[in-house]
Design a protein around this nucleic acid. Structure first.
Lengths: 133, 133
DNA sequence: CTTGCCCTTCCAGTCACTGGAAGCTTAAAT
DNA sequence: ATTTAAGCTTCCAGTGACTGGAAGGGCAAG
């Protein structure tokens, strides 16, 4: 099937599929006589795998490793788990960071009257910066 | 003072300060006779403001608006509040998104034995994708 | 006078795409 | 048969917010 059909079935855009091929995340597709890329159901399956992994927030590099492991029937599940645990830890760090951010922002927003006068605790809060400096 | 000193005092890197100038976030610095950028304490104060705003996750574009409002003594605090509220909403969306991600990931990680055998619920989970498809 | 740090500009790279131009092939509509 | 439309190809450029590095000039100390 052509790239458009593979895109439809995998949920990725044709652009993205070409990009993944160019950067080596997926193997170069077979080519039909007219030079068009030609995808099999297996290829689409791999593309869907990558899409789901990206949807879980794995980087393209991590997706590459996960895809290799997925295709390696001799893999150790510990290798997969290590990648996932690291990513999970990263996500948890990011959540904590954003929660702190949210707390600060929501405090500032609550303090600001939001009227047509110029005095604004938000701007003052930004100007002062975090206290621990 | 030179850019290095302004960098030290503002907590930004010299590279970043030049970048902010180039992209119009901050006004072009005055120049000394030798062509070096020359910063005043007021300039450093603005740079610190921008650093704090960036630290709160505001985009450079938003920082630009906030800095304008900061310098506008006729501002309406409602304009500031609108920017902050929008950003807060974005942060909250992002937190929810990451929390869902974390839940899925932590479920998968828990299910995986993480030993030297190949069977791996993480890879299976990725291959299947979210159920609602 | 040379060492070493600071400053200048400009170019390239990051990450993961996305958009668009220019030029093919193929399929459908007239 | 012709024309249009869609789909495919490659390549180049842009996104955001920097960061790194090269090439070259300024400046103070040893």
């Amino acid at each position: 099937m052509n790239i458009g059909e593979a895109a439809r079935r995998s949920g990725l855009s044709a652009k993205t599929i070409r990009y993944y091929e160019e950067t080596g995340l997926i193997a170069p597709a077979a080519r039909a006589e007219n030079g068009y890329r030609d995808y099999s159901d297996r290829d689409v399956h791999k593309l869907r795998f990558v899409r789901h992994a990206r949807g879980l927030g794995f980087s393209v590099e991590e997706c590459s490793q996960l895809l290799s492991l997925y295709q390696d029937k001799e893999r150790h599940s510990s290798d997969v788990k290590a990648i996932a645990e690291q990513h999970l830890a990263d996500v948890e760090d990011k959540i904590r960071e954003l929660q702190e951010l949210r707390n600060t922002l929501s405090h500032l927003v609550t303090c600001c009257h939001g009227d047509n006068r110029p005095d604004c605790p938000i701007l003052e809060g930004i100007a002062e910066g975090p206290e621990d400096q």
